[in-house]
């Protein structure tokens, strides 16, 4: 850029290319972790909506009475975390989905999903780091 600082190029990632790649389980209109494609599919008004693991910051579970809540936080500007090259933060006009919260009476399931998302995130960060080390 004009300051002579090298801008790291945003690496494009893609969850799916075609809609027949969704895991069959999306039929249940529940949260589906797709390990193979490093993607979390979230049900939004009857539609399966993929979010690549690279967009996810973390997932946490909490309880309130008979309900359990699963909150998925995404990487977005102004959080002071996340590497700049993960997302096209240079597009100053972009809107971001920052978080999504679901509830269920099956708390064990949300503990399991939160763990799976954490593991998927850890693996993906590790893989990225290995790729970077290879490039250097």
């Amino acid at each position: 850029d004009q300051n002579g600082v090298e801008i790291k190029k945003f690496k494009r990632f893609e969850a799916y290319k075609r809609d027949n790649q969704f895991p069959p389980k999306v039929r249940d209109m529940g949260i589906v972790i797709d390990q193979k494609n490093a993607t979390v599919v979230l049900p939004v008004m009857g539609r399966p909506v993929p979010f690549h693991i690279n967009t996810i910051k973390n997932a946490s579970k909490s309880d309130e009475g008979e309900w359990s809540f699963l909150r998925i936080n995404f990487l977005s500007p102004g959080q002071g975390v996340g590497r700049k090259d993960d997302q096209p933060f240079e597009d100053a006009t972009a809107h971001f989905v920052r978080s999504l919260t679901f509830r269920s009476t099956d708390g064990d399931r949300y503990t399991e999903i939160a763990n799976q998302i954490s593991n998927l995130k850890r693996e993906s960060v590790k893989k990225e780091q290995e790729k970077k080390d290879m490039e250097d």
Binding site: D28, M29, G30, I31, P43, G46, H95, S99
Partner: peptide, 19 residues
């Protein structure tokens, strides 16, 4: 009722809107 139609009920969505 659509947000609670599935087994995972969507209760909240947050957006970041710049500027």
């Amino acid at each position: 009722k659509k947000a609670s139609a599935g087994k995972d009920q969507m209760v909240e969505m947050r957006f970041y809107i710049p500027g």
